[in-house]
Write a protein that binds this DNA or RNA. Structure first.
Length: 273
DNA sequence: CTCCCGGTTT
DNA sequence: AAACCAGGAG
């Protein structure tokens, strides 16, 4: 088992120079990189979860214009949150961001906590995001690993894909150049995206292709669009329009109800406030 | 572990 | 049609 201790220091130092040099020369100028405001950093990190950079940029700018800080965001309604989020996907994130703003105003005096363990208790913030926020907002000398960073570490140190999370975390922590954590992590992201060869095509997994995969997507999108225009949507109207199995439509409505997006009342669904 | 979303690329 | 994407919640 190749622990990070088996990697000689000169390779660590050399890699640091490569990444920091690459970032200085080719680093992308992004809206959340010109600020250290913990609020803006947090909004960007939530938006960037499983969502490509190019698509986040305009949504981020619009969001900040609407709600420039935790206080204003904490007053936003569900409808407003979903409207501003529309197009990003994983709508649950918008609702959790709203809850996060309320939690910070009510339980943390309007200030973001600075300990990863405390941050992780807040809605929508997991192991990656808690550390990323502290790195990009406060330049803390800690490490975080997302899919880009994982990929660049495996490539650089010729590690097998079976490398455990713990082994990667140990290596990642040793790599952080003290006092330059923010540039380092930004650099790793850009280096991974811009300087590494494309991913190899993966072995096709066992196709489990649900029969309603296509229509389920349409139904979700349609429900959100309708809810933004009006207050309620009739499930059977939807079912008839989509011409798909009624049970599948109900299943989707129930799943959205679990997320708190809609309330289920008899034959209609209503936007939750 | 599964599910969550949608725009985009291949 | 399938993979991809600054993960997290249940």
């Amino acid at each position: 088992m190749a622990g990070s201790a088996s990697i000689p220091y000169h390779r660590i130092a050399s890699f640091r120079r490569t990444v920091l040099g690459f970032y200085a020369q080719h680093g992308r100028k992004l809206p959340w990189r010109v600020t250290k405001d913990p609020y803006r950093i947090t909004v960007s990190e939530i938006m960037l979860q499983q969502t490509q950079v190019e698509r986040v940029i305009p949504k981020f700018e619009a969001w900040i214009a609407l709600w420039p800080d935790w206080r204003t965001l904490s007053t936003a309604s569900t409808r407003e949150l979903l409207h501003a989020w529309s197009g990003l996907g994983y709508n649950r994130r918008a609702l959790m961001l709203g809850k996060l703003a309320k939690a910070i105003m009510e339980k943390h005096h309007g200030k973001l906590p600075r300990q990863p363990e405390v941050l992780e208790e807040l809605p929508g913030i997991g192991p990656y995001t808690s550390r990323a926020i502290l790195i990009f907002a406060f330049n803390q000398d800690i490490a975080t690993i997302d899919t880009n960073i994982r990929r660049v570490l495996l490539h650089q140190f010729d590690l097998p894909p079976t490398t455990t999370k713990e082994q990667l975390e140990s290596l990642a922590q040793r790599l952080v150049p003290k006092g330059r954590s923010r540039d380092w992590h930004n650099g790793l992201m850009d280096y991974s995206r811009l300087a590494l060869p494309r991913r190899l095509p993966r072995i096709p997994p066992v196709s489990k292709q649900g029969r309603f995969e296509g229509s389920a997507r349409q139904v979700r999108g349609e429900v959100i669009r309708q809810l933004l225009k009006q207050k309620t949507v009739d499930i059977f109207w939807l079912a008839g329009r989509i011409k798909r199995d009624k049970a599948e439509v109900l299943k989707i409505a129930k799943s959205m109800a679990r997320e708190g997006v809609v309330r289920l009342k008899g034959r209609t669904i209503t936007l939750a406030e």
